[in-house]
Design a protein around this nucleic acid. Sequence first.
DNA 1: CGGTTATCCGTACAGTGTACGGAAGGAGTC
DNA 2: GACTCCTTCCGTACACTGTACGGATAACCG
Lengths: 246, 246
Amino acid sequence: MPRPRSSAIWFTDEPDRRPRLSRERITRAAVDLLDVEGVQGLSMRRLAARLGAGTMSLYEYVSSREDVLDLATDAAIAEIEIDGIDGLPWREALSRQLRRSRQVMLRHPWLPALMATRPLLGPHALARSELVYALLHRAGLAGPRLVAAVGALTYYVQGFTAMENAWRGQQPDPAAEAELRRQAQQYLDRRGEAHPTLAQHADLGRDDFDASFQLGLDVVLDGIAAQLGTAGPPADGSGAEGSGRS
Amino acid sequence: MPRPRSSAIWFTDEPDRRPRLSRERITRAAVDLLDVEGVQGLSMRRLAARLGAGTMSLYEYVSSREDVLDLATDAAIAEIEIDGIDGLPWREALSRQLRRSRQVMLRHPWLPALMATRPLLGPHALARSELVYALLHRAGLAGPRLVAAVGALTYYVQGFTAMENAWRGQQPDPAAEAELRRQAQQYLDRRGEAHPTLAQHADLGRDDFDASFQLGLDVVLDGIAAQLGTAGPPADGSGAEGSGRS
DNA sequence: CGGTTATCCGTACAGTGTACGGAAGGAGTC
DNA sequence: GACTCCTTCCGTACACTGTACGGATAACCG
C-alpha cells in the first residue's frame, strides 16, 4: 500500500527535506542499536525501522551489513579522546590513552570483537593509531620494532576487553554475572587436579577488572621499556618451527 | 517422504548401528566445515547434510549453534601440541609454545575470533592454559601478576593472528592478498599528512608475518623478564581515570 | 515541457536457528 | 507375546535474515 505522497502538504510545515537518510545518520543509529542488541541483534530491517525508513533505503548509502559494521566501528573508535596527554612522559601517556580505549570498549561491548576481525582503516582509527605510533616514536622506537610494540599494546587492550565483555556476557545484572563467575570458579576447582597452577592462581571471583587490566598493561609497557634500553634485538635463540604458508 | 525403514535388511550388511551421531562426530564435522566455509558458512543444515543426517537430529547432542562453536573451538585448540618443551628455559619454552598456537590459528582462521569472544573452559583449552601458567609459575610469578602475564601473552597471540587472518581475508590467493595490502598501503600514503609516523613506519607491503609475530612476542617476553627482576610493582604514577561500572 | 538523476522502498527469494511433535525401534516388565 | 517407556531420528513450521530487482516519486536541468 503506497502511502499518498502529496496530499495536504499545506497542513505540515516543512515536513521532509530531500535526503532524509545519510551515511552519518545510519552510522549513529547503528551504534545505538549495537549497544542495545549486540552484533547479532543488528539487522538491516531493525536499523531501518529505527530510522523510520524502508529497509532497502539503507542500501542507497551503504553497500552491505558489513559496511554498516565498519562504519559503526570507526564511529565508536572516534569516542576515544585523544587530547590532554601532551606533556606526559611516554609511559604515563600510553597508560592513560589505553585506559581511555578500554572505557570506550566497555561502553560499546561489541567493539573489541569487531576491531579484532577487520583491518582498521577508518579515519578515526588511523588517528588513534597515529597517536600511539607518535608517542612510541618519540620515545625512541622505529621501524618493525615500533610496529611490534604498537601491536603488543593494541592486541592486549582488545583481547583483555573482549574477554572482560565475554565474562560480563549478556547479563546486565552484576549479581547474575558474579554468580556465573562463581560457578565457573567452582568448575575450575573441581577439575583442579588436571591443572593445579591454573586452579590455584586464576581467580575468577575477583572482579577488580581495572586493576587487572593495569597489571597486564604494565607487563607490556615494561617490555617496551626494556626494548628502549637495548639497541639490537634480544638474543633470539631458536628459529621459527614450521613457518607459515608460502 | 519417510524412507522405508525395514525393507530388505538382508541385502545390506550391518548398515546402521544405533547411534549414528555423536558429540564427537558433530564436532569433527563442524571443524571441517568451518575450515572451508568460515563462521558465517557454518549452518546447522549444512552441518547435518555433511553428516548425512536430518537437521534436527543434531539437537539431540547439541543444544544450539553456539554450543557447536564452543565444541569446535576446544577441538581446534586440542591440535596445539604441548609436548617437547620440558627442559627448555622458560623464555624458549613459551616462544615455542606460542608459535605452535599461532600455527594452529592459521590452520583454522576462524579460531582466534571465537577464542576472543567466549570464556575458554573446555578441557583442552584448560590444559593449554595450565601449561603456560606452570611455565611462568616455575619462572617465578604468582597470583595476579602471573595472571596478568598470561593474559598479555595470550591476547597478543590471539590479536596478532586474528589481524593476520583478517588481512589474508577471504583471498586464498596470495597474489590477490598482496595486491589488497598494496592498495591499503597506497591509501595510507595518500592520507599520510594526517598521520606521518604511521605512514612512515607501518609497512603493509611487508608480509614476513613470522618475523613480525616474533618481534611483538619478544616485547611481551621482555616485559615478563623485567617483572621477574623486580619484587614489587613498577612505579605506577597515576590512578584509573574514570573506572569501570559498579 | 521532456529527460535525467537521486531517493525511497515493496516484493520476492533463498537461506537461517530452532520449537514442536510424531515415528521407529530397542529394552524392560508382566 | 503384549505392554510401556525411552532413545534416536527428523519433517514441518515459523519468524526472521541479507539483499537483488525493479518500480514509484520528485527534484533538477535543458
